[in-house]
Design a protein around this nucleic acid. Sequence first.
DNA 1: TTGAAAGCGCTAACAG
DNA 2: CTGTTAGCGCTTTCAA
Lengths: 340, 340
Amino acid sequence: MASRSVSRATIEDVAALAKVSIATVSRVLNNTGPVSIDTTQRVMDAISRLNYVPRAAARALASNRTETLGLLLPALGSEFFPPLLRGVEHAARHAGFDLLIHTTGARGIQHGKLRRAMGEQNTDGLLIFTGSVDDQDLHRFYEIRFPVVLLLQSPPLGVDLPSVNFENKSGARQLMEHLITVHGYRRIAFLRGPAGNQDSEWRERGYCDALEAHGIEVRPELIAVGNFEVEDSRAIVAAWIEQGLEIDAIFAGDDDSAIGAFRALQLAGKRIPEDIAIVGFDDVQIARYLSPPLTTVHAPIEDAGRIGAELLISQIQTGHAGSELLPTEMIIRGSCGCQV
Amino acid sequence: MASRSVSRATIEDVAALAKVSIATVSRVLNNTGPVSIDTTQRVMDAISRLNYVPRAAARALASNRTETLGLLLPALGSEFFPPLLRGVEHAARHAGFDLLIHTTGARGIQHGKLRRAMGEQNTDGLLIFTGSVDDQDLHRFYEIRFPVVLLLQSPPLGVDLPSVNFENKSGARQLMEHLITVHGYRRIAFLRGPAGNQDSEWRERGYCDALEAHGIEVRPELIAVGNFEVEDSRAIVAAWIEQGLEIDAIFAGDDDSAIGAFRALQLAGKRIPEDIAIVGFDDVQIARYLSPPLTTVHAPIEDAGRIGAELLISQIQTGHAGSELLPTEMIIRGSCGCQV
DNA sequence: TTGAAAGCGCTAACAG
DNA sequence: CTGTTAGCGCTTTCAA
């Protein structure tokens, strides 16, 4: 016997065993078209007796639907992704879709390479995380009307793709107001994300707006690129301390940067928040376990994943979908100087 | 024009434009069989002019290979998964495989349901995380010789599937020795993982062995099920404190449980490690950022993912693969009572 | 309520 | 070096 034969039941085997045509088997499998209750039973029996599993490839080829959602990410490094994946996976499974995950490397996918990686023929639609795909490819998806939803990224000009974003600016603004009015900080530093990261840009605008609204000058030397990375951010803050830069507080563009800032201060023997206060953005799981616990802005990451997937599925099924802007919420813990 | 036509180039279109047969196109696509350099060039031009993307389904159907690895997980909740996914994804991509991810829910997949979810026909092989699939299905995979690698789980009796595991027992044993001999703790509690979790069982054996080796009685009231969950563990430790249970130290079965224990002690106003010491297992990212930083056992999670994927790929390609037992390493930080 | 048959787009012999 | 052709296993008309 061939080594694999045991597992190779096909729809024909089922049909033969149930003494019906393959069309009928297909009907009971997909619940499409009428089948007598008696026949249905025979087919079901045959299926389970043979351990029959429909081959996804054959089905996809014949029906032109893959029932698969693609998820494109730059990397799977940060703490940010578990909730995001959970949201996406949950929504996908709920709607009967599989989830195909690809990482593209930090620089995103170069145009052209994308095709082979996860071309538009191999999933029913794509969930694209910030920075994974260049504008040229986004443009193309838009033109050929391939279902796509952008995660934490707005579409480039003229490309009207649906997207899911956080209310970054208002969240950042609110947090800054807190630092300025409640705690009286004036020399507040900002740790940027990677170049081109839209979340970071909006958060920075909230940062600048708040300063200006209170007549505080925006000082370029207080703004640096932490890349949303623990280590990069630690190094920057360490350098600041080394230089003796005067700072009341650090607004880290995301919680990973905040962790880096924590590290730097701890290693330098500085107290948080007495010497320098730190606040972040995102509210990842770890935030509440730092000490002092991190004051930050809660971003509904799992919701973003879930809603992104839902929008994509609706786009696949109905042909169109809107965008969503998800509210953020300031979470006061101890690292800003508040007693909690 | 049909709304999708732009993207629907097939191998025939390419062949026509390049004035060759589809067989030739297939040859240059897959680098199988000889093609003149001139012809190759014409085909490549046609491909890029048409934005041609081979349809994975057609290819899979014809070749009986999907170039896809399936990953089965109970859930995507914990901090444990980012490094695991990173390892898997990296190895998969490196070898040219796609990654299909499925979560099964906390209880794993019920027999029978698995088939539809990710049947053996729809991936080239499966990476199965502890607790995702019942023994009956594992048995079946083994019988039909479907490529499978077990992650952090040993195969059931008589089912010789390859697996990747941590040296749990010796790691736990070493950590316990440290608590007992260096710090002199004798009343050490243990927080178990979910029922049937093999990592937990081995760690518990290390715990018991160490106690016995030092003539310390294993007390059932000092062992409870924290389920490897923050909240469950917090509740248990809170209850212990409430009851006034005397404890020198808590050995949390994994870092998530350790975090829960931290929470409970902090909320109860107890000092770590002065009142009660805490140690964990895994060394997730957050461990070093707790305060005091968590003493734990480093488990090479990313390696486990990478190696698991590599074993699976080798099994797909060569028909067999061995198992791996990955070394663990004690990481002393502050939460055990050491000054670091 | 059921069956026959025509593809879906590709790979892989087999011929030339 | 290149072309022809027979499927891969399924869905989906169209008839019966």
